[in-house]
Design a protein around this nucleic acid. Structure first.
Lengths: 346, 346
DNA sequence: TTGTAAGCGTTATCAA
DNA sequence: TTGATAACGCTTACAA
């Protein structure tokens, strides 16, 4: 049953609430924002009046008068990436609890334009999850100088002053993974990279190198590379795995640059008539939803996207309040599931 | 090389630009917004000054003073849905051309809270792509009464006054699909639905029913249903296809409720040792990216997500300018690719 | 504990 | 064609 359109009613503003509650308009502000403690009696009256009138404070007026816009920006390489999507959801849901809203941009459009839009809208903070090639340091500085707190995923070799960084401790994570594989008897461990050999900003492959050298004493492990333009998919993981099996038959365990590719690798192994984990152990990185559901469930380095997103919000939130930058290293944890097992023939 | 943080400079405002250009601040407004035509000489001076000072108009001040907020809302069932993602991208990219920004919410959170947030932020318009169960008509009315243009995907049986609707002409689309399959010799055509038998808001299955009756004269075609809570995935499409093969061995062609499930169906058919399209013809709905890449490429009813998103923006934009509602029916087009062929044994 | 009033940076309406 | 100036709805000293 359709609901009739009401006559265009004048917007209810703070003054109206004040009148209804029999107080001044400032008092309404204090109560609603919790800026000052007032007598519980007045408080109740105001709250009641606001509810009755269905009062919705005007966000723009608030942003103009105050210093915060209650808006966050997110610059990501690709919205469609499964992992990013979970990060976005985590960030969003946590943000909403604090009355924040997130504006999401991906790197396919005119990034300069995004930046200006974000500055115009005076977002309080922005999370940058994008390779430096797609967004130069200058842009980050522009944001920072517009008094926006910037939090970037660390993927460079230098830090910008007054910019915050987060990074996962991939190095430690990969040591955990390699050490665990070693315990299972593996020594020929390969790596499936999404990037090509010259790619500078990946932190996972170098972590693998270090881990292999430290834990196994192997300076030249088997690696299969992707190529630019970089992308990630099950299919692609399968392709790389096929190459790995052909070019490095001695390998008994592989670590993939991310879960999606690891899942593709498992499929390729099965397709080749081999079994996981009996013939090949496979380990991913990310812990996406799907990694628990695939067959066999994937052993992976946990970097729970949803939680990550939530954490990102709080880092940003704190840095907005405290008005300062910091560096954050987040630990990774090896999640052992069914895709890894003793080396074949053991 | 790190770039030094500049000393906290005072924000440049319109007055500064006016001074630099030697005109009044109103003049700056006129030039920058194109509200009035001024002498080209003055225009040039203002533009130049704005560029030099790197002037970024304050969005909130503009929204407060003017009537538009240059912000759109999008309520979707699930961001992670491949098709939705393309719609979002199309909407976003088109919006940005007009200085608009889109705030995206999915249906998993507290929708009441979303609504209030959107009203507070005085978005100019909102696109609702969500089943009525997740968002009652009352919420749409609340938005509408807050003077927000509402555009909803039509999935109900009644229209709300002053609310706009879009819908694809699924009925006609499915007639096209069934007619084409008939030409190939198929008469036993099945349907894979994502929903259960009692689901009211789906427009695809009823379209299929009508098409089967009109084109083939079949009143009781083979249908396999999903169940609540509704979701969509390749796996699920495979499961339904398996059931279809077992329960309705006479069927030679299937139409799936969307491409992703159709792709899953193809995989299930292959897994069962049959071939597409030799043994089974498969047709999807949506035309997602993947549908062109799968093997064989999927015949589908085109409803290009990206273009759809762009169209949505313009409908919303026009209805914001004209301040009125409308109803829009978008045509679908059958895209014949490799997953359909002559009936088996023909 | 509560109220008054001065901004916040625009747009828009007049008057010049 | 331009320039003052009053909103816009809120926050927040500061005064009462």
């Amino acid at each position: 049953m359709p609901i009739k359109s009401e006559s265009r009613k004048r917007k209810v503003k703070r003054e109206d609430v004040a009148q209804a509650a029999g107080v001044s308009s400032a008092t309404v502000s204090y109560v609603l924002n919790g800026t000052k403690r007032l007598s519980p009696e007045v408080e109740k009256r105001v709250l009641e009046a606001a509810r009755q009138l269905n009062y919705c404070p005007d966000f723009h007026a608030r942003a103009l008068a105050g210093s915060k816009s209650y808006t966050l920006g997110l610059l990501t390489t690709d919205i469609a990436n499964t992992y990013q999507l979970e990060v976005i959801k985590g960030l969003q849901s946590e943000a909403l609890k604090y009355d924040y809203v997130v504006i999401v941009f991906d790197a396919f459009g005119d990034t300069e334009r995004y930046i200006d839009s974000l500055i115009s809208r005076r977002v309080d903070g922005i999370f940058v999850s994008i390779a430096p090639d797609s967004l130069p340091d200058e842009s980050l500085c522009k944001l920072r100088d517009a008094d926006i707190r910037v939090l970037a995923e660390f993927a460079r070799n230098s830090f910008l002053p007054d910019v915050s960084y987060v990074m996962y401790d991939h190095s430690d994570g990969l040591v955990q993974a390699v050490r665990y594989l070693k315990e299972l008897g593996h020594s020929k461990i390969g790596f499936l990279s999404a990037f090509d050999e010259g790619y500078l900003y990946d932190k996972r492959l170098p972590g693998f190198h270090r881990a292999m050298e430290e834990v196994i004493g192997e300076k030249d492990p088997a690696i299969v590379y992707g190529s630019s333009p970089y992308f990630t998919s099950e299919e692609f993981g399968g392709t790389l795995m096929q190459r790995m099996m052909e070019e490095h038959p001695e390998v008994t365990a592989v670590i993939a640059t991310n879960d999606l590719m690891a899942i593709g690798a498992i499929k390729a192994i099965k397709k080749a008539g081999k079994r996981v984990p009996e013939d090949y152990s496979v380990c991913g990185i990310d812990n996406i939803q799907l990694s628990r559901l695939c067959d066999p469930p994937l052993t992976t380095l946990d970097q729970n996207g949803r939680e990550y997103g939530m954490k990102i919000f709080h880092i940003l939130y704190d840095s907005i309040s405290a008005h300062k930058a910091g560096e954050y290293i987040l630990p990774m944890q090896l999640l052992v599931r069914g895709s890894t097992g003793p080396v074949r023939g053991a």
